[in-house]
């Protein structure tokens, strides 16, 4: 059940103001304005090439924006490496292709950043890692290598790995797009569990069922612009814009 959007006067967790980005001559993001409060779950969707992945990759500066401001939990993303590293410590990311480190075991994948970035002692890092591996329901795979796991298991490890840094925000970049169909549900269930615990989440996905059950807001991007933004029920049942209508008619059968 999507609850009503929290109307708090607190500082937003994520603030994008007039963000523009170009790849060479190509204008990928055009005047993106977005404010996300703590605990909000946002789903970004849109046709391929619409800039939705680029938009969330700007939030931890895997991509650099060239105009406008991005402020994450009070820290503005600039060229200052200190700011970038501070933001990355607080923002977890899950990728389409998992990007687990194949030379490390599942447990080592999960303890790497806490130990080297947060300076956590090894024992404590392993306890935290096992806690989150239990949460994603694969503690028994802790000593295997990623190459020995199925796609769905790998993506759940990737989620646990990001959670081990105890982030305030989680970004999901098409987390189920590279999975075999029978593995999509286990990953989505994990994400739903995370949402129920109140994590601030931004999710690029085509899983409209997930958007309906979990999101506070659905944002539709096309050609680098936010075309429509609404609560999921209204978004799916009564899209306002013709671009949105066309997109929804193409993905929902």
């Amino acid at each position: 059940m999507p609850e009503a959007i929290k109307q708090t006067s607190a500082e937003p967790m994520i603030l994008m103001e007039g963000v523009h980005k170009w790849y060479g001559q190509f204008h990928v993001l055009k005047d993106i304005n977005l404010s996300v409060q703590q605990g909000e779950r946002i789903v970004l969707c849109g046709p391929s090439g619409s800039g939705k992945s680029t938009a969330i990759r700007c939030l931890n500066r895997l991509e650099e924006h060239q105009q406008g401001r991005i402020i994450i939990d009070g820290t503005e993303l600039t060229h200052d490496l200190k700011h970038i590293e501070a933001v990355r410590r607080e923002v977890g990311m899950v990728f389409q292709h998992f990007n687990l480190f194949p030379h490390l075991t599942v447990l080592q994948n999960c303890t790497l950043a806490p130990m080297w970035v947060r300076k956590m002692p090894k024992r404590e890092a392993e306890e935290v890692a096992m806690h989150y591996l239990e949460r994603v329901r694969i503690p028994e795979q802790a000593h295997k290598y990623p190459g020995q796991l199925s796609g769905g298991q790998q993506q759940r490890v990737a989620i646990a790995r990001a959670l081990c840094m105890k982030p305030k925000i989680m970004l999901f970049d098409e987390p189920t797009s590279a999975l075999d169909p029978e593995m999509v549900k286990e990953v989505l269930d994990t994400m739903v569990g995370l949402a129920e615990d109140g994590m601030t989440m931004l999710c690029v996905t085509h899983e409209m069922g997930f958007a309906r059950t979990v999101a506070n807001r659905v944002i539709f991007l096309d050609k680098g612009e936010i075309v429509e933004e609404n609560e999921p029920e209204a978004f799916f049942t009564n899209p306002q814009n013709e671009r949105t209508q066309l997109f929804l008619s193409q993905i929902i059968h």
């Binding site: 895997l62 990355r88 923002v91 990311m93 292709h97 990007n99 687990l100 480190f101 950043a113 080297w116």
Partner: peptide
């Protein structure tokens, strides 16, 4: 793969 660099960067590794 580029994803390895990105995953490391996203976790705050320098």
């Amino acid at each position: 793969p580029k994803g390895q660099y990105e995953a490391a960067a996203a976790m705050g590794l320098g």
